[in-house]
Write a protein that binds this DNA or RNA. Structure first.
Length: 641
RNA sequence: GCCGACGUAGCUCAGCUGGUAGAGCGGUUGAUUUGUAAUCAACUGGUCACCCGUUCAAUUCGGGUCGUCGGCUCCA
């Protein structure tokens, strides 16, 4: 049979003999790259290379250079790891072992608790298996037979999975003595696997449900080449250096103290400067966009939280009540009810809307101890919150306004790594289907009209309404929810929020909850990682470090520093009895954007020798010119100077 | 909260099988007056996270608590 074989952009024809598999053809056609071609695609379907073509459809070869190929390699690696584990620990029961973005994992239930040392032994066993060149063979079985097969082996998890598969037949893959339930395809032989590494052990609930048993999960990765594997490991080490927790300490930005409690943030002077810059900018942008500011208390009567529904729907995140005289008061987990109270303090006309009220509102939420994470998940944090009270006819424009605002913030702060999601109605929620549908549609339309790329995140909305989330990505690729817009038709209902319409009758406004940064803590955390601590000039805690070469220039250096400070520049002078090299080193390590070196030459002509962070010596510049340049850079919020 | 690992000077870390601790950096003092990433020296610094137990003796062994880290589950 004569079939066209496609590789990347090229194609050639090959005439298959009876019973000749794709693998045999590949070995003849591409002997030099036989281990990089791992599967094939026929009519859109991925198949094993051992497949014997039955029709004259085009065959597209899949190599490990493609994402499909890499996934197959990694998935096969997880099977090989499972085989190794079964050999070492025969009582191990396997659950699931998929490939993921960074590699693969396998969830295992076994009596022995694995330690990091055991990973080396498993890896060793895997190398043995790859040297044995075991073939992966596929077998299609009626589902009942497959269930019987796994039942006999005591593989209860496989049986459970099978019992929920609707198909009548399933495929099993065997290599060596190991057989697993799997859709495939797989690499033809274990010898294809050369470059892999087991990374870590973690706990994971069976089927991701915390009511189920916790299994042991082993994470690992595999790559087509040694260089790529080494590159992956180095990239992880590099990413760890950007970790905001590490930089927070090195740059003296913030701390979280055991003595005070987990998840409670202390902003040190340098971190506080960055926060103040962010806040100043934030306020100025709000004024430009027609917002007003409000301030509200940190605690309020429990009755208020019952009215708002938080007591019913959000109690697990709220701290225990405080007894105040005869009443119970709650620390606020959200700001919304307070803004509503301000709204309700007088009768509102349709002419007053939209009302946009913003507050840097500090809230406290009980987060489970295991989820706390530096600045990115804490128990007390300040939301850059705002609530918009809008008429139905204003909803679309207002959502778009918020999205535009968010985009402006993200761009100004130079974020390049983020994803947008549209989250729909969750299981636990209030309101009518029509309400949810209308609100979700409003968000979707706004996203489309703004030409924003987004993903629908089903069931991830808040109990009171759907939302659009912007998730910022941290140094090692984890997503953290930042900016969000949420439509709420529930609270206005519960608090009986109204405005008087043109017809003189009461109408219900729609409420929008939104943050354009997320929270000051989380935003700062991701910002630190974004810049690896090297903030752009406008945000840098110290903008200029003035370094006199000897103490002869000390007075001049102090005068220059005072002049810079006078111009609104955050300048510091280093008058320690250290060599200039040591001062420069320290300033570089503190990631100060500019170092102004002053020796006898500079002092004589009212100038400084400018050194830029990461760039080195920039030559001598007159002080006035230097100031002008700095002010311009600060004003324009240049991201990469 | 769950699974696992970890918790020694301000920081980074050493301390074999139990006999109350060390280094470098930092800080202080002194000397050095220096041209773009660490000048030299002396001094300083720790109820070994906390509590209970085993032991003649615990930083070291066991249990618990708190915290941190990697995941899971859950969220700004």
């Amino acid at each position: 049979m004569d079939i066209r074989i496609v590789v990347d952009d090229a194609s050639s024809r090959y005439s298959f003999n009876d019973g000749e598999s794709i693998l045999m053809a590949v070995q003849k056609l591409f002997p030099q790259q036989k281990r990089s071609i791992v599967a094939a695609r026929i009519g859109g379907l991925l198949v094993d290379l051992t497949t014997i073509p039955t029709r004259a459809d085009d065959i597209q070869l899949v190599s490990t250079a493609s994402s499909d190929g890499l996934e197959i390699l990694r998935h096969s690696t997880s099977h090989i790891m499972a085989e190794a584990i079964k050999e070492l620990y025969p009582d191990a029961k396997l659950a699931i072992g998929p490939s993921i973005d960074t590699g693969f994992y396998y969830d295992i239930d076994m009596s022995k608790t694995l330690s990091p040392d055991d990973l080396a032994a498993i890896e060793q066993k895997m190398h043995e298996i790859t040297e044995r060149s075991e073939h992966f063979t596929r077998q299609d079985k009626p589902i009942a037979e497959a269930i019987e097969f796994f039942k006999e082996r005591g593989d209860q998890y496989k049986v459970e999975i099978l019992s929920e598969i609707p198909a009548t037949t399933v495929s099993l893959y065997t290599q060596g003595s190991f057989t697993d339930l799997c859709r495939g395809p797989h690499i033809p032989s274990t010898s294809y696997l050369k470059h892999f590494k087991l990374l870590s052990i973690a706990g994971a609930y069976w089927r991701g449900d915390e009511k189920n048993k916790m299994l042991q999960r082993i994470y690992g990765t595999a790559f087509p080449s040694k260089e790529e594997l080494v590159g992956f490991v180095t990239a992880r080490e590099e990413a760890a250096k950007r970790d905001h927790r590490k930089l927070g300490q090195q740059l003296d930005l913030f701390s979280i103290q055991e003595q005070a409690g987990a998840g409670l943030v202390f902003w040190h002077p340098k971190g506080a400067i960055v926060r103040k810059e962010i806040e100043d900018f934030w306020r100025a942008e709000h004024i430009k966009r027609g917002y007003e500011f409000v301030y509200t208390p940190h605690i309020a009567n429990l009755e208020l939280w019952k009215t708002s529904g938080h007591w019913g729907f959000y109690q697990q995140y709220m701290y225990s009540p405080l007894q105040v005289d005869e009443d119970q008061y709650m620390l606020k987990p959200m700001n919304c009810p307070f803004h509503i109270l301000i709204y309700k303090s007088q009768v509102r006309s349709y002419r007053d809307l939209p009302l946009r009220w913003a507050e840097l509102g500090t809230v406290y939420r009980y987060e489970k101890s295991g989820v706390l994470h530096g600045l990115l998940r804490v128990r007390g944090f300040t939301q850059d919150d705002a609530h918009l009270f809008v008429r139905p006819d204003q909803l679309n424009d207002e959502v778009k306004g918020v999205l535009d605002f968010t985009r402006h913030m993200i761009e100004t702060f130079g974020f390049t790594k983020y994803n947008i999601y549209l989250s729909t109605r969750p299981e636990h929620s209030v309101g009518t289907d029509e309400g949810w549908q209308m609100a979700t549609e409003a968000l979707r339309v706004a996203l489309e009209e703004m030409h924003l790329v987004y993903t629908v995140d089903p069931g991830e909305g808040v109990f009171y309404g759907p939302k659009i989330d912007v998730k910022l990505v941290d140094a090692i690729g984890r997503e953290w929810q930042g900016p969000t817009v949420q439509v709420d038709f529930n609270l206005p209902e519960r608090f009986d929020v109204t405005y008087i319409g043109e017809n003189g009758k009461e109408h219900r406004p729609i409420m929008l909850h939104r943050v354009v940064l997320g929270s000051m803590e989380r935003f700062f955390g991701t910002l630190i990682e974004q810049y690896a601590g090297a903030f752009p000039l406008w945000l840098a805690p110290v903008q200029v470090e003035v370094v006199p070469i000897t103490d002869v220039q000390e007075e001049y250096a102090k005068a220059i520093t005072a002049r810079l400070v006078e111009c609104g520049i955050r300048a510091k002078v280093d008058i320690r009895r250290e060599k200039m090299q040591a001062k420069i080193r320290d300033a570089e390590m503190q990631k100060v954007p500019y170092i102004a070196v002053i020796g006898a030459k500079e002092a004589a002509v009212d100038s400084v020798a400018v050194r830029m962070r990461h760039e080195g010596d920039q030559g001598v510049v007159a002080v006035d010119q230097f100031v002008e340049r700095l002010l311009e850079e600060i004003k324009s919020k240049v991201i990469f100077a």
